[in-house]
Design a protein around this nucleic acid. Sequence first.
DNA 1: TATAATATATGACACCGTGTCACTTGTCAA
DNA 2: TTGACAAGTGACACGGTGTCATATATTATA
Lengths: 205, 205
Amino acid sequence: MPKQTFFNLPESKRYNLIVAAEKEFARAPLSEASIANIVKEACIARGSFYQYFEDKEDAYFFLLNQQIKERNARFISILKENNGDIIDAITEMYHKLLIEIPDENERDFFKNALLSVTHKVENSFTSLFEGNHSSEQMREVTNLINKECLNVSDDKEVFHIIKIVTAVAFRNFVEKFSGELSDEEAIEIFRMEMNLLKNGLYKKK
Amino acid sequence: MPKQTFFNLPESKRYNLIVAAEKEFARAPLSEASIANIVKEACIARGSFYQYFEDKEDAYFFLLNQQIKERNARFISILKENNGDIIDAITEMYHKLLIEIPDENERDFFKNALLSVTHKVENSFTSLFEGNHSSEQMREVTNLINKECLNVSDDKEVFHIIKIVTAVAFRNFVEKFSGELSDEEAIEIFRMEMNLLKNGLYKKK
DNA sequence: TATAATATATGACACCGTGTCACTTGTCAA
DNA sequence: TTGACAAGTGACACGGTGTCATATATTATA
């Protein structure tokens, strides 16, 4: 987490710094991004950067988690709109993310995050479903989910269904961002895989 | 790919270098591994390293792909033993990888690879199923798979089933290596998720 | 208001890692 | 023996990180 000093900063200065950092992390993946570029863009001294953040990672994960938090909130409301149908909800989410990420910077930021997926980054992306099946946040999501249609006997299995759906969705994002798939193709593939998940990979006996 | 010079090397020298590199990449993830350590361990000059490899990544992905190639071959034979049942095969593979990776070095090497999963690393891991559903390698695997029991209408869907199973398996590996799960817990979870995939996440109508 | 105490800002610097290059050493064919 | 080419070498330039002594600003206190 950023240091207190960062949060004490006057709004506009903090904003400038965030914008500068986002720009750098959109330009290059974490390992290639440089603090020199960030401080130059934000017009602050190198030493100041270290007043605000522990290091590069600290700044990076602060930004990433900020972004993800917004997405998570949006997912919750989409899940409600879809009456707790997790696969329909995640399909809508996928669709929206592909066609509605507006800002070029934001898009490249996500792209870099997805393509150089450290374990930590992946955890950020799936943070909504973090921890084990009995964590606080997990309960909230589990409660929202319509279990009527799910092929489960307890909440633990619901948790694993979420994990499965998330893993597959995540992989689809990575492929969309790395490959030359059009939005339409990507969404079609996503739908197909979600249907396979719904109905089962094996024939009913 | 390593340069020709590397392949011209006398066996024992090449072997030493490989061992030294593996040791370093087991010690630290790619971004933190240092060429200085490799050349020191291998007792060669820094300049020599650059005679053999383009850079650190070049050496890394050469080693990783070598390892993965062996695993892939093993997976093919396991798939045959399981009469083309992809989920049974991948479950056995998972089981074997957890309990039979013998060498401490090799184990840490994999662990680092999985935890700092760049997109390239992930692609190496799933290279067996690389390309689209009509690629040469993909056909070989698809042909091995027993489609009798699969809930599919064409080979394209088989391809996506493979993608799904792989994504879920991959995530399980990452979690096993990052978390504090015992081998038994990890395998139990893996089995549960594979069963959910087989039977479908949603109830049959 | 004056002064002390504390918080913030700064950039030079030590340190470390990368990739290069001019040079040395080895090999092998003529 | 010699020349040509392949392989080996390590000093070095460059660039990035994180630190620290010092300067400046802000706030508290008398």
